[in-house]
């Protein structure tokens, strides 16, 4: 088995809420290991703290309790060993597709000449050869997300953190991008942590699926997903349906509990 790449140890995150007496516990007792080269999906209802967890791993915020290790070392802030892909692309609108991919390379200090070459290569990898000079507003949502993925791949991070990257796309575009992401993952061997609220997406993409509950955000189960074969229409595979149903039931039970708690006056 591959070594552990990301180790999340008893991580909690508490936010102080303005105007409220008590702080808000977004995450509690999160324990999770992500192995090197693994594709892990994190599924949970909206507001369960998925993005908060991703921000912690990215080093954009610090955990209130516990620690996060990458390659055995505690993380200290953001770094180019991790690349993030956001749902809303986060492309610089005044830069072309090429310029956007180069942006990460500039941060890394790659020499100017090499930048354009590498940016071109990665735009090609995501299927955008010929679109280098387009501005984000001249591209469709799916293409923008491809640019964002290329940008994150270009500076060659070990870990790719993806925060519901396909949620804003239409179903067809999403499916084609899922397929491509798997292809790219197979080619580059990155460790991927992929957040989604879509159960199908989680099962389709993940080697393992971590299921999260909300209030406070916790990981309730980690499911190994294995198919005999990934050929053909995977979503029609009976095993796919079983995984899907299993997670669905779990999330529904959670939702029912959460709803119950919400209905009960607090304090």
């Amino acid at each position: 088995m591959s070594p552990v790449k990301i180790a999340i140890r008893d991580v909690g995150k508490v936010f102080r809420v303005r105007g409220a007496d008590r702080p808000f516990t977004a995450l509690e007792h999160i324990d999770l290991d992500v192995r090197e080269g693994e594709f892990l999906t994190l599924v949970g209802p909206s507001g369960c703290g998925k993005s908060t967890l991703l921000d912690l791993v990215a080093g954009l915020t610090e955990p209130s309790t516990g620690e996060i290790l990458i390659d055995g070392r505690a993380i200290s802030g953001p770094g180019l060993d991790r690349g993030i892909v956001f749902q809303q692309y986060a492309l610089l609108p005044w830069r072309t597709a090429l310029g956007n991919v180069e942006f990460g390379l500039e941060a890394k200090g790659v020499p100017r000449r090499e930048r354009a070459e590498r940016a071109r290569h990665f735009l090609g990898l995501v299927g955008l050869t010929g679109f280098e000079r387009r501005y984000p507003h001249e591209l469709s949502g799916g293409m923008r997300q491809r640019v964002a993925i290329a940008r994150s791949l270009a500076f060659d991070p070990d870990v790719l953190l993806m925060d519901e990257p396909f949620a804003a796309l239409d179903a067809q575009t999403r499916e084609s991008l899922q397929e491509e992401l798997l292809r790219i993952w197979g080619k580059t061997g990155k460790t991927v942590v992929f957040i989604t609220h879509g159960i199908d997406e989680a099962v389709y993409l993940g080697q393992r699926v971590a299921v999260m509950s909300s209030r406070p955000g916790r990981i309730t189960e980690v499911i190994e997903v294995a198919f005999d074969s990934r050929e053909g229409d995977l979503r029609a595979d009976p095993a796919f349906g079983e995984y899907r149903h299993h997670i669905w039931t779990r999330l529904r039970d959670e939702a029912a509990t959460a709803h119950h708690e919400e209905a009960t006056p607090v304090g």
């Binding site: 469709s140 796309l169 397929e179």
Partner: peptide
């Protein structure tokens, strides 16, 4: 730009 622009076949 029309969203269909992103629908160009994958791969």
């Amino acid at each position: 730009s029309s969203p269909s622009a992103g629908l160009t076949a994958p791969g």
